[in-house]
Simulated assay, not measured.
Amino acid sequence: MTDAREPTVDERIDLYVTIRSLFRDRPFEATALGRRLVERGEHEYVSATGEPAASLSWLVEAGVVTADADGYRVAADPDEAAEKLATAGGVDVDAVRRRLLSALAADEGAPRTLSREGGTYGVVRIDPSDSVGAAVERALAAVDADHRGAVLTTPGTNADLAQRVADRLAADHSWSKAGSTVVEGETPDAELVFRLYLDA
């Protein structure tokens, strides 16, 4: 059954953060976004009729996302986006700015690449709630011409999921495992982090 409730202004502001984190400046389609949102458990953007297209249209009208023949694309940096989203939503700009910068800092504070034996690897964080397919898609997107491959990083108790992602990449894309390490978490009481390096 379809939920008739539209996402709130706050949820649409959070959607901008999610889109920027997932796609950065790459184009994307509404269907791809919907799939990623379901995989992340963010069902409020796909449960109502016409979503996530309606929220994307709202973000386009706000001026923080553009739409063209290649799909949608983030069009405003966080500072500019704060003003535009606040205006579109009729909310306080300083509150929106704090919300955006806090959420984006949490995402962007982590390293985007790691080096191993002279090679550079794109970092792909895997949460226990991620599906194998979603993690594979992120790993493929994390590698460009400057990278030897990707490094899957996840809490140590989630290492099994990282291994399954690596097996899928090996089977479907001919990637190979290049080694793994376990490192301390970011805080003294944080869980150990498992890193699995893959050559693309």
Score class of each variant (00 low, 15 high):
residue 96 V to K: 14
residue 8 T to M: 07
residue 24 R to G: 10
residue 121 Y to C: 12
residue 129 S to V: 03
residue 69 A to V: 02
residue 77 D to H: 04
residue 103 A to Q: 14
residue 24 R to A: 07
residue 126 I to M: 11
residue 75 A to R: 09
residue 9 V to K: 08
residue 58 W to K: 04
residue 15 L to P: 12
residue 49 T to W: 06
residue 12 R to S: 14
residue 16 Y to E: 02
residue 46 V to M: 08
residue 169 L to I: 05
residue 51 E to N: 05
residue 6 E to V: 00
residue 92 D to I: 13
residue 8 T to Y: 03
residue 86 A to T: 13
residue 128 P to G: 00
residue 132 V to A: 05
residue 91 V to T: 15
residue 104 L to P: 00
residue 1 M to H: 10
residue 146 D to P: 02
residue 172 D to P: 01
residue 12 R to K: 12
residue 105 A to L: 08
residue 15 L to V: 07
residue 102 S to I: 04
residue 26 R to Q: 11
residue 148 R to P: 10
residue 194 F to V: 02
residue 158 N to W: 00
residue 187 T to N: 04
residue 37 L to I: 06
residue 113 T to Y: 01
residue 70 D to V: 05
residue 130 D to Y: 06
residue 32 A to D: 15
residue 71 G to E: 08
residue 55 S to F: 06
residue 161 L to R: 01
residue 14 D to Q: 09
residue 150 A to F: 04
residue 107 D to V: 12
residue 178 A to L: 13
residue 123 V to R: 01
residue 16 Y to S: 04
residue 94 D to F: 09
residue 68 D to C: 14
residue 73 R to V: 05
residue 17 V to I: 09
residue 102 S to K: 12
residue 118 G to I: 02
residue 94 D to K: 10
residue 172 D to F: 09
residue 10 D to W: 15
residue 200 A to S: 13
residue 144 D to L: 06
residue 107 D to L: 06
residue 170 A to C: 12
residue 46 V to H: 03
residue 12 R to Q: 12
residue 120 T to D: 08
residue 5 R to Q: 13
residue 129 S to I: 01
residue 46 V to T: 14
residue 175 W to K: 10
residue 41 G to C: 08
residue 125 R to A: 13
residue 128 P to V: 14
residue 139 A to L: 03
residue 65 V to K: 01
residue 143 V to M: 01
residue 10 D to C: 15
residue 63 G to K: 03
residue 112 R to V: 07
residue 18 T to Q: 15
residue 28 F to C: 07
residue 137 E to M: 13
residue 119 G to F: 07
residue 77 D to Y: 01
residue 151 V to T: 04
residue 119 G to W: 03
residue 77 D to W: 05
residue 122 G to D: 03
residue 31 T to Q: 10
residue 74 V to T: 10
residue 123 V to C: 00
residue 32 A to P: 11
residue 184 E to P: 00
residue 28 F to P: 00
residue 70 D to F: 08
residue 83 E to T: 15
residue 185 G to C: 06
residue 58 W to E: 00
residue 183 V to C: 01
residue 45 Y to P: 12
residue 142 A to G: 00
residue 38 V to I: 11
residue 16 Y to F: 12
residue 168 R to K: 14
residue 180 S to K: 15
residue 96 V to Q: 10
residue 106 A to V: 08
residue 138 R to F: 11
residue 24 R to D: 15
residue 161 L to V: 00
residue 171 A to G: 10
residue 42 E to R: 09
residue 71 G to A: 07
residue 103 A to K: 15
residue 166 A to D: 09
residue 56 L to M: 02
residue 103 A to M: 07
residue 165 V to C: 09
residue 118 G to T: 04
residue 23 F to E: 15
residue 94 D to S: 14
residue 119 G to M: 03
residue 185 G to N: 06
residue 83 E to Y: 13
residue 173 H to C: 00
residue 177 K to T: 14
residue 67 A to V: 10
residue 33 L to R: 14
residue 191 E to M: 14
residue 62 A to Y: 05
residue 35 R to Y: 05
residue 71 G to C: 10
residue 14 D to W: 09
residue 21 S to N: 14
residue 34 G to Q: 12
residue 193 V to Q: 07
residue 15 L to R: 11
residue 52 P to E: 02
residue 49 T to E: 10
residue 49 T to Y: 03
residue 142 A to H: 01
residue 48 A to Y: 11
residue 25 D to R: 07
residue 169 L to N: 05
residue 91 V to S: 08
residue 78 P to G: 13
residue 8 T to K: 06
residue 104 L to G: 01
residue 11 E to G: 04
residue 147 H to V: 07
residue 123 V to I: 00
residue 54 A to C: 06
residue 116 R to W: 07
